[in-house]
Design a protein around this nucleic acid. Sequence first.
DNA 1: GACGGGAACTTTACCGGTTCACTCAAGGCT
DNA 2: AGCCTTGAGTGAACCGGTAAAGTTCCCGTC
Lengths: 342, 342
Amino acid sequence: MKPPSGRVTINDVASRAGVSKGAVSMAFNNRPGVSQPTRERIFEAARELGWAPHQTARSLSNQRIDIVGLAICRPARLLGLEPFYMEFISGIESVLADRSCSLLLRLVRDLDEEIALYEKWWRSKTIGGAILVDFHRNDPRVPALQAIGLPAVAVGHPSLTGSFPSVWTDDATAVAEAVRYLAALGHRRIARVGGPVGLGHSVIRAAAFESTARDLGLEQHRQVATGFAGEEGARATRGLLLSPDRPTAVLYDNDIMAVAGAGVAAEMGLVVPDDLSLLAWDDSQLCRLTHPTLSAMSHDVHHFGAEVARTLFGVIGGSHSGSLQAPTPSLTPRGSTGPPRG
Amino acid sequence: MKPPSGRVTINDVASRAGVSKGAVSMAFNNRPGVSQPTRERIFEAARELGWAPHQTARSLSNQRIDIVGLAICRPARLLGLEPFYMEFISGIESVLADRSCSLLLRLVRDLDEEIALYEKWWRSKTIGGAILVDFHRNDPRVPALQAIGLPAVAVGHPSLTGSFPSVWTDDATAVAEAVRYLAALGHRRIARVGGPVGLGHSVIRAAAFESTARDLGLEQHRQVATGFAGEEGARATRGLLLSPDRPTAVLYDNDIMAVAGAGVAAEMGLVVPDDLSLLAWDDSQLCRLTHPTLSAMSHDVHHFGAEVARTLFGVIGGSHSGSLQAPTPSLTPRGSTGPPRG
DNA sequence: GACGGGAACTTTACCGGTTCACTCAAGGCT
DNA sequence: AGCCTTGAGTGAACCGGTAAAGTTCCCGTC
């Protein structure tokens, strides 16, 4: 007897194929114990009924969860603008898809909300693991999420991520390279427009900037901490350019702010790169669209995301992977950097 | 007896509170049948044990799924650049979060893969409903997904989305407004750089552009169909500007391509807006960062996403909502449009 | 020709909740 | 006092799978 409609279950498939539901289960998990002909009869029956194993029932039974959580804590509008995250997510996806896992995405307003969300997700067995991003110094997520035993991989420098396995890029070295490059072009007044001071990688980059500038004897180096939004980058750039002894080169913490910086330069009648050199971070396609094109500290975000996902599977699978260093962002010179005029 | 560790179930909570598991269930679904003191004892016990209802078990039992699927079919790298999607997603999220639902996101390569994915998601009861985007003419998803009865809301003009309830913006009117505005400024040679011809809204916009230009007696109007990537927009713009009788105004299908267009203009030594006016679509923050700032056909994508999500809940809830028209994109003039020189 | 050993299935006990028919005691009404 | 109602709480069935133990049956072997 066919069911009236709608809900087709393993039993329907079983009876149509003339076997028990155990056999169907075995066939669909390609486990031994079912002969080839029977196996085919089962698949045939399933196909005819349009049946696929009920994911929920399945994971209730076998205790495994094929969903990975990612909460991002940024104002929504801002996020829309950061090419970084979409590329990062697409990198994650590329790995998840292979294992037919899925990404559960949520935007949160602050760290407390994020912690609460992860706790709920984990307690209610909604996710099998998580990806943590945007680490702060003494990040409250570290103790909170470690306490509940959430399997997670952290994106950030190991000094920030507690005992969570982490995937990170060596920002300090990259910043040093950026500053040395600008100095080599002849710049003596170099500034940096960075992300929020709370963020761990801002701190690391700021320290690297400071020490490299010192080493090179650049007396006039300055840093501004701001958000990641383009408008904030614009404001910060305006501030720098209006100051006495304005910088001749500016290093930005992402590409949106660099684009904004280019806009401000144009608005003030400064010629890039003659009057002002600009160096972006997180090189995305955007950097190749402006005129002049933007030099950037380039790094393969898609690949980075994939690496993070792979590491997470390692963690969930029980391997105690430590920290993994992704390739250091590398300098990609384009039209926005050059020797200072005069 | 406490369980050894790890798995705390409803039974543990029940026995600790001295009630049956049915009572715990009632309490947690705040259903009548449990007195206030008992209710509190139950919550207390749950808190102490750090228990939350197992989401999987719960949804197996009550047959409801609090996950919504969204598959996006664009090359990953490109997607990273489109502010539209992230803003759209954040709008969706804002509604989902209220109902503690989550968004399952997946990037796919083509429509076949997308169809297969939705079928799998639906058959396996992974999602309770879906959001469909980027409709083509005679989109194969319409028959395929309707056949399996997937509850879904479509983003696109009702003429494209079959019997799926749709949420859409009146692009035709917006295009007409854009063209009229440029014509009113004095432009006679207006071009449009649009998305792929396959895409339904490209077709609609193209037709509106054509007919408005005709109505206004603009003999020199031209359209180029391309992708959505900035580089494609740049190439298209170059092509237009190098042609004899180059246009004095260009309308773009998104903001990335408009930014790219501004880059090309600068590269060719054209002054915006004197030599060339540029008008973007999908106004994002990006349009305010360039110099000059970009005029755009602006629309609230975040809000739009929220509306889509609300409609989806309507569909899942069984209300037969038809199509819902979101506010028409409205002209937001900025620095990139003005009367043509001479 | 009894016995051992597999392959091929079937049976049955879960997984961790929800739901609903049912019990039980207390209170109200006549 | 007897009867009815009502609120609080119990217990078992059920959701749709998986896993492990159990059952057949067939074949080779000594």
